[in-house]
């Protein structure tokens, strides 16, 4: 087997032979990522009403279903309506600490069974939750960021916020407020730089997922078909007064 040292030695040997290379630079990164992220935040605090409209247009363009409510206490009714449309009795969702509000309490008056993701690791929990997530027709998550330019939901995995909630159910609903909105991919880059600014920091989860519409394929005769492996439908519920 080749070792790291051997492999890199070969790379360096070949690099030493190159000549006549053109000057090239990587993309300029923010010098102070945290401050740059703060600047983006301040910008969006002003511009979020435009950003949410752009998000809606792009999200609908990728076949997302957009809902907008004024306050968090209006969310359960929207969720109940979606569940009724889908004939869903069971709803799987993020842990209250991850979501910022309690899905089980919110849906209590609506006669739905709410299966919450346990905010801990363990074989028994894992097995039970996987079975629940695979069974429930509806998955409810938050959205850490919502990218207006492309209609993209960005979700961080972590304790109480498993990856499968937005993946295994046929319908995924993400609930978020103005604080999640970003306008451009470039801003996402700044936010990601800030998120990773402290190299020693390994809290949170192992995956960041960008979701742009439902699961899709065009592998048979380039005919667009939705819901191959992931959700067949993605909904966004935007809460003007904030969701977290």
């Amino acid at each position: 087997m080749t070792t790291r040292v051997q492999f890199l030695e070969r790379v360096r040997r070949e690099m030493g032979k190159t000549r006549g290379l053109f000057p090239a630079t990587t993309a300029p990164r923010p010098a102070r990522p945290r401050e740059a992220a703060e600047a983006v935040r301040r910008q969006l605090a002003e511009r979020w009403p435009q950003a949410v409209e752009r998000f809606r247009a792009e999200f609908e363009r990728v076949a997302g279903v957009f809902h907008r409510v004024g306050r968090l206490d209006e969310v359960p009714a929207v969720l109940a309506r979606i569940a009724a449309e889908k004939g869903a009795r069971e709803v799987v969702g993020w842990d209250p600490a991850a979501l910022g509000w309690d899905l089980r309490a919110a849906l209590a008056p609506h006669d739905l069974v709410v299966l919450l993701a346990p905010p801990r690791d363990g074989e028994a929990d894992r097995r039970r939750h996987r079975e629940e997530a695979a069974r429930a027709p509806l998955g409810v998550t938050g959205a850490d960021w919502a990218l207006a330019e492309t209609g993209t939901l960005i979700l961080f995995s972590g304790p109480g916020r498993p990856r499968s909630t937005s993946l295994l159910p046929d319908t995924h609903v993400a609930v978020f407020g103005p604080a999640a909105l970003l306008e451009t991919l470039e801003q996402v880059g700044v936010m990601l730089e800030a998120h990773h600014a402290d190299p020693a920091r390994v809290d949170g989860g192992g995956a960041i997922t960008f979701i742009t519409g439902p699961s899709r394929t065009a592998d048979i005769e380039l005919t667009l078909t939705r819901g191959v492996h992931g959700p067949k439908e993605v909904h966004a519920i935007f809460v003007d007064a904030g969701a977290a």
Binding site: G122, P162, V202, G204, G205, G206
Partner: peptide, 14 residues
């Protein structure tokens, strides 16, 4: 999908 390492402490999946 941005995958950064295996499942973290407290994380149920991955």
């Amino acid at each position: 999908t941005l995958v950064r390492g295996p499942r973290r402490p407290g994380e149920l999946e991955g």
